[in-house]
Write a protein that binds this DNA or RNA. Structure first.
Lengths: 188, 188
DNA sequence: TAGTTTGTACAGTTTTTACTGTACGTTCTA
DNA sequence: TAGAACGTACAGTAAAAACTGTACAAACTA
């Protein structure tokens, strides 16, 4: 990691610091639903001062190349690492995406949207079908009240899904940064 | 489920609708990191017109009482169900929390905060230690640049964590609803 | 074209997680 | 106070996920 010219003592210190931070990153990455080890790999790449190959990763992580391949692929899907082209090298090179704001918003936008879209569709269809059913049932019947209650619950859920959809929109568009600015005057 | 007085045909329709919605809920609940079956249980409770006992759940879910016990406990921890007291009954009764806004914000507030707090602490400590190290190293040395780069990366990360902390604050305080109102005029 | 090198598919193994059944402590009931 | 009913701890089993090593297709090299 290009610390060669440092005294042994200093080298140890740097490695210790990095290792601790890498650990922290690895742990906190379960927010993104990835394995500890995938998170750990991300942490490793975080401190790498140049793009790494699968072999280098495997060496550092003391894990198989196959595992590195799958981990990197996961991180690529999450857009947390980028493939880098370097002339001369036949190997694939990867480096981390340092824009954590983007990483965060991308991930949850995708994850939440996936869930919302299908749910919304099903809830709406079900509300509609329930409506037809209610019209078939005599008024003021106990059973009618049960069905209407079902319907009400589903409509409330739809309200929530629509809100979540708008929240996702604001993550994607960046409007969220109007309410929560990237750098807060009070923190600086 | 108190649909007894309905014709067989209508009963089947209601059950079909409910089942479809329950499935959808069950699937979408993996957002909250719970098992399919725990999500499914939540869906079941969603349509229950009265609080349910563990035995009833087990019967409906065709699963062991033990599983119901652990699932319910998970949902209780996530504040997605509430324990209900009913005089006369010795059994514990549970009903869902219908406020999905609250459920959502609670969950992610807690989850994210957990991750941010520890990370922030570690990053800050590490930046500090790295600073000391940098002062030990001769100026304009290549190694110094590497350390300063490490430091810069960590400071950028801290910026992100502070932002996330503020986002969490706004979820917890409800300020988020100023940017994204619960009911959008355009949707109504 | 033959010979390397590189990334990944796939099968097998280990580890982890989900679920079940039994057993037991606690609480209510008579 | 004895007996029954309830929820859960715990141990065992089944299912799923993570990881490894081998093998192979594609891409490069000479």
């Amino acid at each position: 990691m290009s610390l060669d010219h440092l005294s042994q003592e200093h080298q140890d210190k740097v490695i210790k610091i990095r290792k601790r931070v890498i650990e922290a990153i690895g742990r906190s990455m379960d927010l993104y639903g990835v394995t500890q080890s995938t998170g750990h790999l991300y942490g490793l790449l975080f401190f790498a001062d140049k793009p790494m190959t699968l072999d280098e990763m495997g060496q550092e992580m003391k894990m198989s190349k196959t595992s590195m391949s799958t981990s990197v692929r996961t991180l690529l899907d999450l857009q947390m690492v980028n493939k880098v082209w370097e002339k001369g090298s036949r190997k694939d090179l990867y480096e981390v995406e340092y824009d954590w704001f983007q990483t965060f918003t991308d991930y949850f936008a995708i994850e939440w949207r996936k869930s919302v879209e299908t749910s919304l569709q099903i809830f709406r269809k079900s509300i509609e079908e329930m409506q037809k059913l209610i019209q078939d049932v005599p008024e003021e019947d106990a059973i009618r009240r049960v069905l209407m209650e079902d319907q009400r619950k589903m409509e409330e859920a739809v309200g929530y899904y629509l809100w979540l959809n708008r929240l996702i929109d604001s993550l994607e568009s960046g409007d969220i940064y109007q309410l929560i600015p990237k750098d807060n005057p009070r923190d600086v």
